[in-house]
Design a binder for these strands. Structure first.
Lengths: 218, 218
DNA sequence: ATAAATATTTAGACAAAACTAAAAATATGT
DNA sequence: ACATATTTTTAGTTTTGTCTAAATATTTAT
């Protein structure tokens, strides 16, 4: 597989949200910063290779083969992200560009050894699940922290309110994107939450909780 | 720089033995498994970009810029080799193909962090020196063990006699390619050597020593 | 239901990097 | 020194992946 083919397969996978949703030519062109005519050409080639199902004007879905390829690329991408953060001190928001390159390296032995070396991680630094060698993984969903049930664990992946005041509050209280959060208890009276964040307990207001996004693996 | 351009620069560097030796079109074609006409085309392009000096029919040398590019690729290649051997349990003879891919990954931060993470290694698993960030490195030479002076340290990189008997001897005595060897003393009488190999002391005959190649960093 | 808007495909061209075959320059042997 | 052999370059194609512009299909709105 060429680099370009892999990029298309990955884009189709993500645009179809991991399900077998039909993806349109235009959506791929937008997602990949290219022209629809280029997409048509490539999609024909991928179809000839048995990686996608394609009928003129009808959009594209991945075949089983195509989905396996996509999962293998996603697996590599996310494992390398864990490596960059855990071993090379990258922060969670610096890793994407480099992982885009590393995901194309071809060596089954390397990626399996890397997986073991990292301790078989299940999620990447953005909270997204890492497919196992045979392509299995837990679905993950994004929720506001105040909507999560008691006992739920997730990774802090984003803010709804991006005002300076809120970001300062987070910084002051040592809450950062990438932190692991568990909901310990909720107060019915004011909707405030008792959480464990990076090992320490905290009590936060509903207002705070309703502005923090959590990535949760079911 | 494209992948292909980087491969040419690296090949010219290696064929020129790291010095500024002139390299011929045919030599590059042989070294890269391609045709001389393809080399001519690419060399013109590299010349336009200021990476090589080129005059028709006169062969090629790297410019200062080209040599810096070459050293940066060699640095990346060798650091990744150390990573694969030290962290992912590859053996020294399995790493080359994967490192050929990894050497093209572009991220200065990553390679510097990797360097630090590996403990700023000075030589790769084959005994070749790793250029520092600013392109400095010790020259390394290959010698038979029995020709090394007392006090010299090197890495065992090859055998002269590759008979089954000799290889069995090495295996039985726990001597493997990649091992670090220091010459402690030499007996004038029979030319035998006292060496330290992977931390333990050994006494080996001249016959053994004259069939083991050492890579030595001056 | 049909015209207008939007989406998709086709046709033809281009750049990068390779190739083959032929031409030109350099090197070699006697 | 000159004919021959070798090396290198040129000219013309090919493949991959892209593009623009034009043609065709589908969707939307009235």
């Amino acid at each position: 597989m060429t680099l370009s083919e892999e990029d298309y397969i990955k884009a189709i996978y993500h645009l179809g949200k991991g399900e077998n949703n039909t993806v349109t030519t235009n959506a791929i062109a937008n997602g990949m910063d290219t022209k629809p005519s280029s997409v048509t050409d490539m999609v024909k080639k991928l179809s000839d290779k048995g990686l996608v199902n394609y009928k003129k004007y009808q959009g594209v879905t991945l075949t089983v083969l195509g989905k396996n390829v996509a999962l293998s690329i996603v697996r590599k991408h996310r494992l390398w992200e864990v490596f960059l953060v855990d071993k090379l001190n990258f922060s969670w928001d610096e890793v994407h560009e480099v992982a885009e390159q590393l995901e194309h390296i071809k060596s089954e032995k390397m990626i399996d050894q890397l997986d073991a070396y990292l301790g078989f991680p299940k999620i990447d630094p953005h909270g997204d699940p890492i497919p196992s060698k045979d392509g299995e993984f837990k679905k993950s969903i994004k929720k506001l922290l105040n909507e999560a049930s008691i006992g739920v664990e997730g990774i802090c992946v984003g803010v709804k309110d991006s005002s300076v005041a809120f970001l300062k509050f987070l910084d002051k209280n040592n809450i950062a994107l990438g932190d692991t959060v568990t909901v310990i208890d909720k107060e019915e009276f004011d909707g405030s939450l008792h959480i464990k964040i990076n090992g320490r307990n905290m009590h936060i207001s509903n207002q705070i909780a309703s502005n923090l996004y959590l990535q949760i693996n079911e």
